[in-house]
Design a protein around this nucleic acid. Sequence first.
DNA 1: CTGAAAGCGCTTACAG
DNA 2: CTGAAAGCGCTTACAG
Lengths: 327, 327
Amino acid sequence: MKAKISDVAKIAGVSPTTVSRVLNNRGYISKETRENVYKAMKEINYFPNDIARSLFNKRTNLIGMIVPQTSNPFFGELAFHIESICASLNYKVLLCNSLNRIDKEKKYVEMLIRNQVDGVIAVTYNRGIFDSESQSLPVVAVDHYLSTDIPTVSSDNYSGGKQATELLISKDCKHIIHINGPLKLETPANLRRKAYENVMKKYGKQPITYEISNTFDRNIQRETISKVFEENPEVDGIFASDDLLAALVVAEAQKRGKNIPRDLKIVGYDGTEASQTLLPGLTTVQQPIESIAQTAIDILLKEIEGEFSNIPREICLPVKLLEGQTT
Amino acid sequence: MKAKISDVAKIAGVSPTTVSRVLNNRGYISKETRENVYKAMKEINYFPNDIARSLFNKRTNLIGMIVPQTSNPFFGELAFHIESICASLNYKVLLCNSLNRIDKEKKYVEMLIRNQVDGVIAVTYNRGIFDSESQSLPVVAVDHYLSTDIPTVSSDNYSGGKQATELLISKDCKHIIHINGPLKLETPANLRRKAYENVMKKYGKQPITYEISNTFDRNIQRETISKVFEENPEVDGIFASDDLLAALVVAEAQKRGKNIPRDLKIVGYDGTEASQTLLPGLTTVQQPIESIAQTAIDILLKEIEGEFSNIPREICLPVKLLEGQTT
DNA sequence: CTGAAAGCGCTTACAG
DNA sequence: CTGAAAGCGCTTACAG
């Protein structure tokens, strides 16, 4: 049987109330009593039951974190930073991999509510998963607009898209194509495409965007990329909306005997540690993943503390263009 | 205020006991009552408080998962599978990024105990983090021996190391070097080195293993790799103990003007989705990450259910050699 | 400086 | 088929 507070009390010769007091450092307690209690806790290897505490306190110090998939380096890195920062603040993280599926996300949200999480950090493409039932639940969205009253943290996608496109143009690319994920929703990431299109038009060029419908099926992605080359034999610049996509473009280009960067220039997006290690030559727009995590947590904690006054509705963090050998 | 069971009871005109019964599908309940209760729950948006349930049931359905760092694709992918499988079995996962630091691991273990997790899946290099206090805690280790009574799930590291080395030999490499992480501990991953050394000896070659002391500092890794080339100008084959390391070797070799695979052949280890996408040409030994996750969970659940009888002390899953363009 | 009592939201014998 | 009571392990007024 696990030791409980009354066991400690018995051994230390005090009441459970007193044990609780030394545990929480509340009220006056004689040095002697305190030491006796500590000794008793050591003796029977006592650890407080945080479940019981949470029930009373109506505070779990639990944060729900919904990401599409930690095996994707961007989300894996984001998850790492979020959890690490939370741990340093004494918050615990419940991990949820949603695969962007709305059914899973809804289930996860319900699970998080049942588990009384203090707040949720959500990286999800689906609006409407936080509804009526979760009105009072503190939520912060990363990289996606979820609803008018949920703050969003993202990096400066417009600037990133602009820098990527302008780089390709400055390198003399004539036929630049953009490949993006699902475009249906008003996500900040969509601004990457907007920026691409605007820059293209500004330079009198025709923007062409290909959409990858499924983010999780590499074969579908490969097919789309193959189509890009088939339908645009003159393509000499590609801006891919994430590094994995860019890597697939690199592979397909090599398969087709194209010399990079001579025949084709490629810019990716994300600049994760993993992609920079595995494909260090890739030119890419690096997101400030750690500050995204930090900012999201700062905002969420404010919401949790009830400081709704000075919470920005949207925070946009700067990106950094990393020039490699693919441009 | 959040709705609770007594609110539902009041509205449905029954006792809390009855509400609990319909919630848990226990005992006989008239159809009418059941429907009234459901209607009441809908009406006030009631969700059961799992914290309160857990307190009573002494069962949280929580699993602690300790990994070094989810930003590393191998652990990110493992974490994804573990969490996904757990979710499908109605278990929730508390994420812990330990960075392999024993102080962090100990803190995480204590946190998990306080939170009454039903069990822990640990990928850690440090023995002794599960001590006396956690005797009764179900634990399963992945890829590392933690103690004699903690089951270990790993892939067949010896076979992987053997296949990698034999491949290099069969490709006519004369001077093959192995680069590994910290070697101090008796981890299954150490078998990769053992296998390398045995195969080398078998073929009358001198095994040379370089050790990377810090897994998290890319610069230290780069320095060690640079040293490998400096000290062994004749090297024509390198077996790196993970894909990120292999990628660094590729980069360094290119920097030194070596043609891969003509002048130098490289084999990595892990074969994650991310590394196979970002560096598809890499020859590597692929670990069965999903089955590792599945197996670890199977074993952990058995421990949780108290079925200690038929739990193997060690499970070893088959690896797969993926030949790319680096050999 | 310390303890007895009540309660956090739930569930399960027990009784009817 | 249903309800009143006790209890999961803790904490906090309240009283001394």
